[in-house]
């Protein structure tokens, strides 16, 4: 809490940061950091995945590896193909061609629900809290391998009552961690936008995933909740999960990400440690549409300047 207090005192308008100083994971890659570079222990490997909409190529990724046990940020300007890549990797969309593996298993042609069952759970840019279900029901829906989800066994409560109680206890535990336990009997529709984001993340955790893919987890969330969201993302890593998230805000990315992948016009244009990536001319080029002499993220003052410039630009684009 103190770190936050200091930073707020110093720059009141600065976006929130995690309450604890994040422990960065390093040494993730092999050889030179660059687009498509090899990782020591990749969890997700993408090869020649291409998706076109009509004449427009939305995604064209030659090779990409996502490191295990780290927080990886996927950034890029609007229309860079980040969400489309997310949809392709999670089975929500089908690429024109290409292959990709998760934990060594091929995911090409695997439907979204099977991808999720393998332990690769995603959230959505526009939150998909199930509004007319209670918060608790939302949570319970996240649990894997439920006996009572079979149509015929559903009619025999004695078959699934115990499992249901276990899931309920687990859900309550998660809700407490996400400070939503008082809302457990409310309809999800009554939650605020930020609380829905929290609920969606908590729900994703019900299935004990190995890879959590968050699509703009911080979008449209007020600063106080953003801070708690950042804490939760860091917690995921400390619990041994791998996180891949899409984000616009470079500032937050720099704080919590161990690795950054930059996309522009459907391609991966840069990869690396957050601080180094921000200095990459290709990244600045992608964001500002022109070469820029100064790098981003070295001097805190110039950094905020640039980041806010970029944010403004992105907001205009939106």
């Amino acid at each position: 809490m103190s770190a936050n207090a200091v930073s707020q005192a110093a720059a009141p308008l600065e976006p929130p940061v995690p309450t604890k100083k994040p422990v960065k994971t390093t040494g993730l890659h092999i050889g030179e950091a660059g687009p498509g570079c090899a990782k020591v222990d990749p969890i997700l490997v993408v090869d020649n995945v291409r998706r076109t909409f009509g004449g427009l190529t939305a995604v064209d990724v030659a090779h990409l590896e996502v490191p295990r046990g780290a927080i990886t940020a996927l950034i890029g300007p609007n229309g860079a193909g980040k969400t489309t890549l997310f949809n392709l990797l999670t089975g929500f969309d089908k690429p024109n061609d290409g292959k990709w593996t998760f934990d060594g298993r091929s995911l090409a042609g695997v439907p979204a629900y099977k991808v999720a069952r393998m332990g690769q759970i995603r959230t959505f840019q526009l939150t998909k809290a199930l509004g007319l279900l209670t918060v608790m029901d939302n949570m319970l829906l996240g649990a894997k391998g439920q006996t009572g989800e079979n149509m015929f066994r559903a009619l025999m409560p004695f078959l699934w009552r115990n499992q249901e109680e276990e899931n309920r206890a687990k859900a309550l535990d998660l809700l407490t961690r996400f400070k939503l336990e008082t809302k457990k009997n409310d309809y999800a529709a009554s939650l605020s936008g930020g609380q829905r984001k929290l609920l969606e993340m908590a729900r994703a955790l019900m299935s004990d995933p190995t890879l959590v893919m968050l699509d703009e987890p911080m979008a449209g969330v007020n600063p106080a909740l953003t801070q708690s969201l950042l804490d939760h993302i860091l917690n995921l890593k400390s619990q041994g999960m791998t996180v891949l998230f899409v984000e616009h805000d470079m500032h937050m990315v720099r704080h919590i990400a161990d690795w950054v992948i930059v996309m522009a016009e459907g391609k991966v244009v840069a990869e690396g440690d957050p601080h180094e990536v921000m200095q990459n001319p290709a990244v600045i080029d992608a964001y500002l549409g022109q070469h820029h002499d100064e790098d981003i993220g070295v001097d805190p003052d110039t950094e905020t300047e640039h980041v806010s410039a970029i944010k403004e630009l992105l907001d205009d684009e939106r």
């Binding site: 929500f92 999720a116 069952r117 759970i121 959230t123 959505f124 894997k144 969606e200 729900r203």
Partner: peptide
């Protein structure tokens, strides 16, 4: 409520 959300939670 939202079939994509349910799909993302591993339900067929």
């Amino acid at each position: 409520e939202d079939e994509d959300a349910v799909r993302a939670l591993g339900k067929n």
